[in-house]
Nucleic acid binder design. Sequence first.
DNA 1: ATCGCTCTCTACCATATGGTAGAAAGAGAC
DNA 2: GTCTCTTTCTACCATATGGTAGAGAGCGAT
Lengths: 199, 199
Amino acid sequence: MVTRKGTTRASILEASVDLFGGRGFAAVSLDDIAGVVGVAKQTVLYWFPSKDELLDAVLEQTASELAAVIEAAVRAAPDEPLARVEAVVNAVFRPAVRRPALLGLVREVSRLSPEHAERLTMRVRPFVRRATDYLEQEMAAGRLRQADPGLVVSLAYATVTGIATEPTALAAVEWQGTTAGLRRLRRELTEFLLAALRP
Amino acid sequence: MVTRKGTTRASILEASVDLFGGRGFAAVSLDDIAGVVGVAKQTVLYWFPSKDELLDAVLEQTASELAAVIEAAVRAAPDEPLARVEAVVNAVFRPAVRRPALLGLVREVSRLSPEHAERLTMRVRPFVRRATDYLEQEMAAGRLRQADPGLVVSLAYATVTGIATEPTALAAVEWQGTTAGLRRLRRELTEFLLAALRP
DNA sequence: ATCGCTCTCTACCATATGGTAGAAAGAGAC
DNA sequence: GTCTCTTTCTACCATATGGTAGAGAGCGAT
């Protein structure tokens, strides 16, 4: 077959993010992935020697993508904590809504083997550390509500990923996924977080 | 065999909540469940004719339990919205921490078949409706921050279940699951939500 | 005793799944 | 042309899984 090098591999990764993040790692078979990509299962196993290593690659890529998006948002935002929070929310909200599986995959981590979870935790820790340090400093300066910075990071994370990955919760309050609905959801999410963080 | 009627059935349900909620429905086999309970797989299939119907029963029971806990907490709390929110958080926090799988199972719903999700949504909707109506009324009275009541319910739900079901997120901020750590987590969670809801 | 009912088990089965072995097919180097 | 390298495929395999069939064990009623 003639394809540009890496194309197949990239397609497999992309499909895997969607499937793993959407249905959960265990619920997805290599045949499912191959079917979406349009190749034979063996082609998947050619690029990734086992389902487990495919998962590794998928996690690594997702972490990189999200980290890049967040980095860019923080860099572009003014140096004011509430504005930065808002910038991060806006930056994450768009890809999260477009591809719910992205954050779904992040959530899936807690169900995976301790090794996978550990690896990703280590991968993300420097970013988290920087975030908590920043919050701590801004809390001390009185620009954010006094609280445990680490737990506040976790809580904000839980709110954002939770709302983005649980259509069921939104369906229960009869929320509509229209453009207007999305705009309102983003505004409410931002307001919710800002209210929780304001001094 | 001689056992009190319902004992085996109840044990199967209990083990299934933990396993489905902890690892995800697809990642759990009937043999896994039978192994935990200490019976043969066929015994599981005697009480629940298929894995799918077992899931139904597990969801139904979990929903009932949680609903009862929340009902009782709301009833016991004074008629003041912030106090009620705090009461619900406290009521849910204890079982959620003791058995992370409980809320993990609730979260699992979004990965299940639309039929299961739909059924549970309908089951829960009256409670949700009452909650949003209550919030709306209290917002109008100025005792809560003005916002979309439905989305606020979803956001609060996302925060609580998110933080309770993602040990990974807490591990990333180096949180310790000691008694003191748990107390601090509960306090921070409560403060976070109250801050987000206060007028 | 034995019939009937409830509950649990052993024995199997069809299918799906992750993974191995190796063939084929294209394309560039010589 | 042919050799070699890369990429994809067909053919299989061992195992795990959800589920069926039916036997056996305990126990109360007659």
